[in-house]
Design a protein around this nucleic acid. Structure first.
Lengths: 209, 209, 209, 209
DNA sequence: AATGAATGAGGGTTCATTCAT
DNA sequence: AATGAATGAACCCTCATTCAT
């Protein structure tokens, strides 16, 4: 549960390499070299390559849980404001942790029934519950429509933002945004993706459209 | 350009395994075994594992081009109808070829500058042009809004449908659709995804919302 | 015994590649490609890679036999003149057929008891007999010394000329002969090697020194 | 630069097999088997088959340098005595290390521009310089002739001794020396080759002939 | 007579992991 | 607690050769 400096270093290096080359195409030697640690240390600390990625998932997920739950309790926000905040936070997070989310998307697609699939499923369930609660609240307050497909909405949010991020160079070229610095561009993209999803959510959830 | 029976067999087996296990975690031996062909035949026909996946991309992409262009020429359709048709066809296609599209998503994420990245880029450009033309037509006819972010719309369509497909088991469980046969369920999911994207497109493109 | 055009083409291509890369590091595919013939044709015509090199040896050796025997019969030449002529012809031959002689030297060194070793031995025996006869003639005419080590003389001739040829670029650089054309240089080198060996032979065979 | 027991074992086994079968016809599996080490160990220690032969060249060459330079400094020896000593040492060395010198001769003939070619060239240059110094000394002392072709002399020495060694069985048979033990025969051959080259050198270098 | 298709065997190399220290 | 040395297994690929046509 608690990782020392070397372990974190290994996990973060692995994260980058897995995101860049894929899990199967990344060797533990590469990771050891890039992290500047002894090859045997990876097996020593994590047991195996598979366990390493599982540890990484734990490591990254453990930081996520709290934010969402705080959101729910805040009584000063309307359900729509909560939804908007949730979108903002989600997009923020995948932009900041894009390496990790790349890996998650990739692993999600594979057929293997690993620990990771299980962890991923749990996270999805937790997230869906939060969404469910916000939406139920909105429906009780007659602000949201009755017929809302939550899972579909999540697909819109997760799918759109992931794709937009992966597709960012195409976006940049198409919209002739090469003059922006990487940071400026990412900030802009993040904004637009967030607004897009908010707009979709508003249209689908509320009566105003 | 033209592949014989054995070659197609190899490519389709590879497609399945790449989709299931990832490119890097699939060995040519696995492919050969599953396809029931001699190991050396894969190198013989395709040269290398890398070339095999490139051939697969060519093979799958070559069938796609025509449908889109025919869509454009049809004068009996309104721009919105064209958009709706395009969505329907896209979702149809990725459901039918979900193995292939899984691979494409995965490869798209990797940093490697392979032939595949190039082919993928070309396809995206072609698709964007078609979308562009339909939307321009709609704008000229005062049916569509002026400020439309095409690339963002594509991210919505591609991202949402990909994610919905990958996430299908969660969707099924959440909505308690286990009583449906696989085919029935997929048909239902396809319908809902298509309607979702159509709704989003309509809201974003037209004035009615 | 008699080879058609394609066969000769294959053998001569093989000769070049064997000389350049070594027998074991040359593949039949390389030969087929470079010779511009079908891969299967090599097995078809020669049976195997091993048989191909044997055929090459036959092919190249069959042209050699006659010249030497004519030399012996010429009564107008003194034994020393015959020796000189023999040296000239030998050096000429290995320069002209340097690819082939490279292969022979290489094969000669290997421990394998192949057909080639046998053929090579026969050629050596034939050559030694000729040398023996000339020298015996010289000894009978009191022109040559009694104590002559024929095999050692052959080692001097064969070893020196082979090495000089292989070492030719070093020779060229050391003696600053880069201004000469390849042909001019080879002619010069041939001359010098020939004179060197003649001088050694004269010193070792005759009483004058 | 410094090799452990296993590494030496591998290099010496490789040396023998390369000399017997040629580099290209020797597999790393053969080497591993014969050396009694794990297959992977060869890559582990040397990186590749190519690097293995390079390491071998370094290993064998590193022992050679000193002897020659000590020769030069000895003031009690005449230039001719130095030349004789040099011949003796050279023949000794190639007899003792005949496997290695076989490999060198073979590699020398190939067209590949490898590290080995470079190392070989450097060694030749060093050796030529030593020879040059001895001969210059002899010329200054009016003991040696002015017109001496050093590189040609080296070709005589190197070529003759190599060939004599490779041709040893023919020599043995021709001179009916089968009654000698292998050691006795080699000692005899070494003696004769050495005397032969000394005689040639004396005749070519001095005025006496 | 000649060849495209095919293959079993083996090539060199890298893999993730273990183990003695 | 940490690591250099080592390895069995598997990697992708190429080999020389065969065979149906």
């Amino acid at each position: 549960m608690s990782y020392n400096e070397k372990q974190v270093q290994i996990m973060e290096t692995a994260e980058e390499l897995f995101a860049m080359n894929g899990f199967g195409s990344t060797s533990v030697r590469q990771i050891a070299d890039k992290a500047g640690v002894n090859l045997a240390m990876i097996s020593y600390y994590f047991g195996s390559k598979e366990k390493l990625i599982e540890a990484l998932v734990d490591y990254r997920m453990s930081h996520v849980r709290l934010t969402l739950e705080n959101l729910l309790k805040d009584d000063s926000l309307t359900p729509l404001q909560k939804m908007n905040l949730l979108v903002t936070e989600y997009v923020d997070r995948i932009v900041q942790r894009h390496h990790f989310y790349k890996i998650m998307v990739t692993e999600h697609m594979l057929d293997k029934n690993s620990e990771i699939t299980v962890k991923l499923l749990k996270m999805k369930q937790r997230n869906t519950e939060v969404l469910q609660q916000i939406i139920s609240e909105g429906q009780q307050k007659k602000m949201f429509r009755k017929d809302v497909d939550i899972v579909m909405l999540m697909s819109v949010m997760v799918g759109t933002s992931n794709h937009a991020l992966v597709n960012r160079e195409f976006y940049r070229t198409y919209h002739k945004l090469e003059h922006l610095s990487e940071d400026e561009f990412i900030t802009l993209l993040k904004q637009r993706v967030t607004e897009e999803i908010k707009a979709i959510f508003k249209a689908q959830l509320t009566y105003e459209g």
